[in-house]
Design a protein around this nucleic acid. Structure first.
Length: 477
DNA sequence: AGACCATTACA
DNA sequence: GTAATGGTC
C-alpha cells in the first residue's frame, strides 16, 4: 500500500514556492492529494466581497488544472463555515486513508482556531507537517529584546533584514509530476466532491450603483511570474520615484495574486534582490516588509483582529454617523476630484492605487469623521487584493489609532495631494468624465468649481481638519 | 507615509 | 507678491 500525503490548501493557491506542497510531494513513492474547503459563510463574516470570492474560485479552477498536470488531484469541498471543517477533514482523511497532512500556517485568530480543532481531532490518526509560508519570516521569530512584537515599522524592518542576512530565504520550486496511477488510486465518487463552476453572474451580486462588475486580475501562475519579472526588470529601479503617481503604472499590481496566494511573498523578495542593486530594491522590499509587519501586529496584538484599534485612544473617540456623508464617499460623490476618481477606480477595477488609499482613508476618517472600521469594511468588500492584516493596519494607520500610526495631527489635504501627485489631473480625468473638459487649474481649485454634473465639496476641509485634531486632543486628555 | 503658519529673503 | 525655512500641531 502506498503512503498517502494530503496537502491542505488555504491561502496559498499556487504550485511554485509552496512549502507544504513541495514537502508533501518529495517522496517519490507516495500518492499526493490536494484539498481545499470553500467557506462562503465564513468569508461573509470576514467581509470578503464578491470580487475576491470570484477571484478565489478562478484561482481554484486554474490550480486544479495545473495540479492535474502533476497528477495531483485537487478536491474542492464546500464546508460553508470553518466550524464544519474538522468533520469534513475527518471524512477525507478516512476515505483517502491519509497518512500525513501538510499545510502552511496562517496567522489570524479564526484560522488558527480552525486549525487547532482539526489537529486535536485527527492528531492520533494523521501526522501533521506545518510550514511558515505566508510571511518572509514567522511572526514569532521577530521580537524585541523584551520578547514582544514590534510596534514601530522601522525597527521591525531592521530586525527582518538582519535576520534574513543570517538566515537567507529558501524558495521551493514546483514539485515534479507524480505517477498517473494516483488518479485512479481511490474511489472519488464516495466523496461528495463539488465541482465549482466559475459563473461570475451567480457570484457577483449586482449592486444598485452605476458601477459595473470589474474583470478578474490575472491568476495564471506563469503569467503572474512574467508580471513579476517584468516589474523587477523594468520598473523596480524607478519604483521609489514613480509609485506615488496614480496616473503612472509604477507599482507591481501583484497584490491580488499575493492576497489569494497565487504568488509567493518569498519569491517576490528573492527576485527583487536578484534583479537590481540594494538601493534600487529597497523601497519595494520595504513594502513587502510592511506586509510582514501588519501580520506580526495581528499575531502579537490579537485585539486588533477583534475589531479593536491598537491604540486605546480609539475608545475615547465618538465617530460621526452621518450616513449621507458616508454614502457620498462610497459613491464617488464627495465633490473632491481625487477622492471621487479613486473610489471610481476601486469600484470599476477592484483595485486602488496605494497613494489614493491613504488619501480617501484620511478624508473619510479625519474630515468626515467616520469610523475607520466602516472604511475598512468597504475596502474589504470591493478589493480583489483584500487582506485583513494589511487593510486593517492601513486603516488604523490613517486614522491615527494603530501601531506606528500617523500622528493625529497629520491630516492629508486632498487639494495639495492631488496637486502633488496628479498635477496634470490625467488620473482624475481618466475616471471622472464630468471633469474631462475642465483645465487642470480649475480641477485643483475644486472648492470654487461649480458644474451642473459634478457635486460641490461636502464639508469644509479646513474646519473639519481642525475639529478632528481637537477631538483627538480631547480624547488623549 | 503632512500641513499650517510665521518669518525671512528675495523679485 | 512668493518661494524657501523652521517650529508647531
Amino acid at each position: 500500500m502506498k503512503k498517502v500525503n494530503l496537502v491542505w490548501l488555504r491561502n496559498d493557491l499556487r504550485i511554485d514556492d509552496n512549502s507544504a506542497l513541495y514537502h508533501a510531494a518529495q517522496d517519490k513513492n507516495c500518492a499526493v492529494f490536494a484539498l481545499y474547503f470553500v467557506c462562503q459563510k465564513q468569508w461573509q463574516e470576514h467581509w470578503v466581497g464578491s470580487n475576491q470570492q470570484a477571484l478565489i474560485f478562478a484561482a481554484l479552477s486554474e490550480l486544479k488544472q495545473q495540479l492535474r498536470k502533476l497528477n495531483i488531484p485537487l478536491l474542492i469541498l464546500d464546508a460553508g463555515h470553518f466550524s464544519q471543517v474538522p468533520e469534513l477533514m475527518q471524512q477525507v482523511v478516512t476515505q483517502l486513508k491519509v497518512d500525513d497532512c501538510y499545510f502552511n500556517r496562517e496567522i489570524l485568530l479564526n484560522e488558527r482556531e480552525r486549525d487547532k480543532q482539526v489537529y486535536n481531532r485527527l492528531k492520533d490518526q494523521v501526522k501533521f507537517h506545518s510550514y511558515n509560508d505566508q510571511t518572509l519570516i514567522s511572526p514569532h521569530k521577530i521580537v524585541t529584546k523584551e520578547q514582544q512584537g514590534y510596534k514601530v515599522f522601522s525597527d521591525f524592518a531592521r530586525a527582518v533584514k538582519s535576520y534574513l542576512a543570517d538566515y537567507p530565504l529558501q524558495n521551493f520550486s514546483s514539485p515534479k509530476a507524480k505517477e498517473k496511477s494516483n488518479f485512479n488510486f481511490f474511489d472519488f465518487t464516495q466523496l461528495a466532491e463539488q465541482q465549482f463552476v466559475i459563473d461570475k453572474a451567480s457570484i457577483i451580486k449586482k449592486e444598485h450603483t452605476v458601477f459595473s462588475a470589474p474583470s478578474l486580475p490575472e491568476i495564471n501562475e506563469k503569467k503572474i511570474h512574467q508580471q513579476l519579472e517584468r516589474f523587477c526588470k523594468s520598473a523596480l529601479s524607478d519604483y521609489a520615484e514613480q509609485r506615488d503617481y496614480p496616473a503612472i503604472s509604477g507599482t507591481s499590481a501583484l497584490s491580488a495574486a499575493l492576497a489569494v496566494g497565487s504568488l509567493s511573498i518569498k519569491r517576490c523578495y528573492t527576485l527583487a534582490k536578484q534583479s537590481v542593486n540594494e538601493r534600487q530594491s529597497q523601497t519595494w522590499i520595504n513594502e513587502l516588509i510592511w506586509r510582514d509587519f501588519y501580520r506580526s501586529v495581528a499575531w502579537h496584538f490579537p485585539h486588533v483582529v477583534k475589531g479593536h484599534a491598537f491604540n486605546p485612544v480609539d475608545k475615547q473617540l465618538t465617530w460621526s454617523n452621518n450616513t449621507e456623508h458616508f454614502a457620498a464617499w462610497k459613491n464617488a460623490q464627495t465633490g473632491i476630484p481625487i477622492i471621487d476618481a479613486a473610489i471610481t477606480q476601486l469600484r470599476q477595477t477592484g483595485w486602488m492605487h496605494n497613494r489614493l488609499r491613504m488619501i480617501v482613508a484620511s478624508y473619510l476618517t479625519k474630515n468626515l469623521w467616520i469610523d475607520w472600521r466602516e472604511g475598512e469594511r468597504f475596502f474589504a468588500e470591493h478589493l480583489f487584493d483584500y487582506d485583513f492584516a494589511s487593510n486593517n493596519g492601513g486603516w488604523q494607520w490613517c486614522a491615527s489609532v494603530g501601531t506606528d500610526a500617523a500622528p493625529y495631527f497629520r491630516v492629508f489635504n486632498p487639494a495639495s495631494q492631488q496637486q502633488k501627485f496628479d498635477p496634470d489631473t490625467s488620473f482624475i480625468k481618466q475616471w471622472l468624465p464630468a471633469l474631462k473638459a475642465q483645465p487642470a487649474k480649475n480641477i485643483h481649485k475644486f472648492e470654487t468649481l461649480s458644474l451642473p454634473n459634478y457635486p460641490s465639496p461636502q464639508v469644509n476641509l479646513k474646519a473639519t481638519r481642525q475639529q478632528a485634531i481637537e477631538a483627538f486632543k480631547q480624547a488623549k486628555g
